[in-house]
Structures are given as C-alpha cells and as structure tokens.
Design a protein around this nucleic acid. Sequence first.
DNA 1: ATTAGCACTCAAATTAAATGAGTGCTAACA
DNA 2: TGTTAGCACTCATTTAATTTGAGTGCTAAT
Lengths: 349, 349
Amino acid sequence: MELDDRKLKILKAIIANYMETGEPVGSRTISKYTDLNLSSATIRNEMADLEELGYIVQPYTSAGRIPTDAGYRLYVDKLMSDKDEEFAELKETRNELLERVDRLEEMLKQVARVLASNTQYATMITSPHYQDPKVKFVQLSQVDDDSMLAVIVVDGNVIKNKMINVHQELVNDEVLKLNILINTFLQGAALHDINIEMIETMKQQAGKYAGVLEGIFQGVIEAIHEAEELEIYTSGGTNFLKYPELSDATKATKLLEAFEDKKALNDLADDAINKADENNIQIYIGDESPVKSDDMQDLSVVTATYQLKEGAKGTIGIFGPKRMDYKKVVSTLKSLTEELDDIFSKKKE
Amino acid sequence: MELDDRKLKILKAIIANYMETGEPVGSRTISKYTDLNLSSATIRNEMADLEELGYIVQPYTSAGRIPTDAGYRLYVDKLMSDKDEEFAELKETRNELLERVDRLEEMLKQVARVLASNTQYATMITSPHYQDPKVKFVQLSQVDDDSMLAVIVVDGNVIKNKMINVHQELVNDEVLKLNILINTFLQGAALHDINIEMIETMKQQAGKYAGVLEGIFQGVIEAIHEAEELEIYTSGGTNFLKYPELSDATKATKLLEAFEDKKALNDLADDAINKADENNIQIYIGDESPVKSDDMQDLSVVTATYQLKEGAKGTIGIFGPKRMDYKKVVSTLKSLTEELDDIFSKKKE
DNA sequence: ATTAGCACTCAAATTAAATGAGTGCTAACA
DNA sequence: TGTTAGCACTCATTTAATTTGAGTGCTAAT
C-alpha cells in the first residue's frame, strides 16, 4: 500500500487535532478539519489504511484514532514544515532573557523558567561543560588573621573560591611569593598534569607554607571537576499535571521524581549532544529516549545544543506529552539557541 | 464543660490515629486503640463533647472524626511529649550530611534533600542572611588580555566574582595600585557607605582606570545584596502527591506551584525567624501561615531557625498535610539545627 | 472512487442499589 | 452516676446496571 499525499494530509490532520485536544480523533472531525472535502466515510477508509501502515491506532474498538510513536516520528521528520512564523514570541523571550544576566547560573535558571512558562512543558538546561579544562590562574590572598582565599580560574572562566585555614599569619611579601610559585606550576595545567611529583616539588619550594598548598590543590581539583561536570537546572515540572494523559497521581509522581533525577537527565544530555543533527536539535519520542524507564514511555523530549564560543556545549531539553507541539517547540528551541550563542559570543568580545 | 484528662487522652488517640491513616477515625477504633478500656459507646459520648469543644469535627454526618486546626494546635502545644527517642535516625542524617560539604550551597541543597527523603514531606531551606553586611576586602587580578577578575569578599565570607572587560591592558604594577586604592576605600564599607561622593573621589584617583571601577562597584553592590538576600532551596515537592487529601490534580498543581514561588517562601522564612520560640521552632497550622493563599489552607508548616556563629540566621521549613507527624518533624528539626550549628561553628575554628 | 445509510461496538457518563462504618439515643446495669 | 449493649438511622463509598453517543465497518447506491 502506498502512503500517498492524501493519506499524509489526513495523518497530519489527525496528529494536529490530537495535539490540540488530547482525545482520540474520529473520521467526522477530520472530514471537517481538512481542506480536501471528503466525507467521513472516505476518511474512515483512509484511516483504516493508515492504521494498517502503523501510523495510528484505536485505543479501543470503535474509538477514534491516536498517533503511534511511528506516526509522531513521521510527523516530526516529514510533515512538520518549520517554515512558520512564531517570531514575535521569540523577541519577547529575548527581552526576558537579557533583563539581568549577571551570573551564568542565574541566567540558565531563568532560561529554564522562561522556556517552561512559554511552552507549558517541563524544561531543563545544563551548564556548558568543557573537555579537559586547564587552570588559567590562581590568586591567593589574605582575608583575615587565620584564613586565606584562593581564587582559581579555569577554562571557560569557571571560578572556584576556596577558603583555607592557616595557622600562621603570612606577611604580604610571602603571599606574593607563594602566588608566583603556585602560578608557575599550575598555570595551564590540566587535571592529569597534577601528579604527586609536581605536588612534592611545590611543597618543597613552599617550605613552611606547604600546608597552604593542600587547600589549593583541593580547590584546583574541585574547580576542574566543576568545569567538566555539568549543572542541571529544571523548571516547570508541574506542567506535567496539565496533561490529563500524564496526570493521574501515580504516573505524575513518578514523572516528577524522574524529572528530579539529575543522573538520568545527565545521561540524556550526553546522548543529545552526541546525536544532535546539524540544527543541533534532537527529538526523542517515547521509547527512543536513552533514559530507559517506564516513565519516559509517555513522554517526548526535544533537545537542543547550544555552544559557548570556546567550544563548551550545553543542552536544553523540553519534556512534554507525546502530543506536544513539536513545531512550536523546535522553533522556540532554535531561536533560543541562536539567542544564547549570540549572547555568549557578545560577552566575550 | 471541662477538658479532663480522659478527653485529652482520647483526643490524642484520635489525632495519632488520623495521622497514620488519613481517614476519619471512629469510636470503635479508639476504644481499641487506647489503654483506658472503654466501650465505643463511651468514646462516642466523649467524642461528642470534644466536637462541641471544637477540637474535632465530622466531615459528614455519621462519619468518624478528624481533628480541627484547634485540635492540632492543642496537640502541638500540650500533648506532644517530645521526650522521645528517634535518635538513631539523626545519626544517620548526620553522616549523610557530612559526606561532602564543600560549598555552602551544595550543603544546603543536600540538607533539603535528605530531610525530604527522611520525612516524606516537602522541605525548604534558606541560606543564612546577614544584617547590613560589610565588605571585607576586594582583590583585583588580570585574567587575560581583556578581562579582569574582581573577587569581593563580604561579611560571612560571601564571595562574589565579577568579570570585568577592560579595553586597555594593565601592567602588574598598576593592578597593584588599583588594588590598594580600592581596598582603602571599600574595606569595611556597608551598602549605605557607598555614595556618589565616594565613587567620584575614587574615580578621580583612579585616573584613566576609572572604567574598571564601575564593574567593581557593581560587583560590590551585588555581593552585599547577595549576602543580605537569601537563597531558597526546596526539595521533595512531589511528596505532596503521596497524601490523598492533597493529591487531586488541581490542588496538587497549585501546591507545587506555590512551593516554587520563592517570594512566598521568603515571606514565610522572615516570619518564622521573627516568631520562633526559644527552641527556634515555629509551627503553622493551616490558616496560621503568614502566606495567605488558599493552597496553604490544607498544609501545616514547621520551621526551624539555624544560626551561623557570626549571627547570620537561616530557616528550614517542612511542609506537609495537617496530619503530619509533628513529633517526628519537630525532633528531626531540632537535632538537625543542632547539627548545623555544630558544623558551622566547627568550620570557623 | 466516493458517499449515504445503518447496524454494531464499547468507553464513559449516569443512575440505582447494596454495603458498611459510624453515629445518637435509649434503656439496662454495676 | 458513669458505663455499656443494642438498635434504628445516616450517608460516603462501592458495585452493578443502564443509558448515551461518538465512532466504526460494511454494503449498496451514485
């Protein structure tokens, strides 16, 4: 059997309608919904074909049809003309975004929030992460009598502050010397460069201040890990409850808990970065998700990858019911990542 | 009518039972539940009295009884002998807590998480906040050709990193001078000390580097605000869904959304700090909450105030159904705040 | 190839009946 | 006088029966 143009049109209409209502859609509805004036009977015949082809199913005998995962997939791959407007909305997003973006963390949280409230789906965003980041420099200073502050700056301007308790007071001159020592060794160092040998050499040269170095190493290692690891921010989990097919108590609880499971989200983000297409967009429908849990069964996830100038990448994800408005989500994500790329490159100039 | 000892015992039994089951409790149940061997008929008589006194109600004619807010209040104030064990659990908590507490933020998040998973209620914790914090010192350093890093340390060791774009490169010596200038003026300054006059004087003395100062002022002001404002971390919102009386779709959505409303939580934290009793514990039952929203109607909130050595205070809150296990919650909170006070004072030594 | 018509199906909504936990009251008892 | 057994009554909840209506597949006519 052929999947001709008319069948495609009908399938598209079914999916579109189901997205709106969340209810199985019947032949009568479609016969009115489309522009190809056909009677419900004809539609019924076509629907029977589409069902045979595996794009739609009846949840029970003599109910309307709902799309299968394959149906959604076809929709996403072929039917979703992304040549649509939706750009007014984007401008809005942009302004909301730029309002007060001083810290990366705040900004990412805000992105997640804005995105969730715009789309009415659950959203996540990861911080950008770097491969094998290097120490840019370390700055040691005396805070008060018994504590020093080590500021460690790592690739991508990840900054780690580390308070260190010292039991002897250092005079200015000594702090200066220590600073020079530290930077001589550590500037440009990656994690694998920091070995016992290096540590020993430094300790020797630091003499009686060797103790201070301990704290610094600790801080450096933590800073590098932080730059490598990715923070994950989520927002709008409650939106799950807005979709009847997800909102019965047990299902909702599981979804919300899964959505708080940073580990799983992390896996998803990793997978998304690897698989993303040339548009940096990746769509998982139900089972397709790399997170193999029953909870994901009922969800679709659309991810986008954004990029800092220096090559560090992060992931944005939108979690919704399978009948989510893919077109809108994809276009929103596309413009958002463009925004972000823009902002990040501006920041550096 | 008198609220004699027997009535109290019965009331206590009713509340305890209702806490377990969440179902209205009848006379028969109580006649078995208590040690004062009475028949259900007698209990019924007593219950009628308790109802007249306003401590319990029937949700509908000829159902069992459930406690009123007044009933819970009495329970909390009088009946809740806190001379109970529950200390094994605490030790556990402690260990989980200490596992990896490098950054305050991480630690607070962890506290919220552990607490939520231990109690099965929703939890929040605020960062400690300071009154009128002062700048401890500022450290300026060159990161690369066109950016500088200002590290601003404020009372309570709140550290703010501020990247500043500079369009002229500074040599080491100049950075040093600038550092001295900045610290001369800003060390020990509170927000109200930073006025136009001061800024102007500094700018004059900085000469062609006046531009750099802009960024520093901005950073200083932000840092002070951050030290003053309180971050709020929440966890376990999904626990609401575990209690049937809270878990119908609309109610749950509202609760979860309210629980994400940082503004409201902030108000609550403020109120809690002011009202807390000598034990630093404060209990809000339903309407008593300072957050006047319908959603709070069905909740009770127990808060505890913890304290950093230097006088900065933070709030921990536990949100649950009115039938929450007050005894357990209060004792958990008490030991937790002790833990925290302990940890914080250790940190400083 | 399309469509009107009709008998048929079945989830969901509605109504009805059965169940049972719990009550208040009365009268008997220690 | 306080306590209790017994009984009629209430009403949310459960279960069963029914009605409703959207939607289907098939057939025969256009």
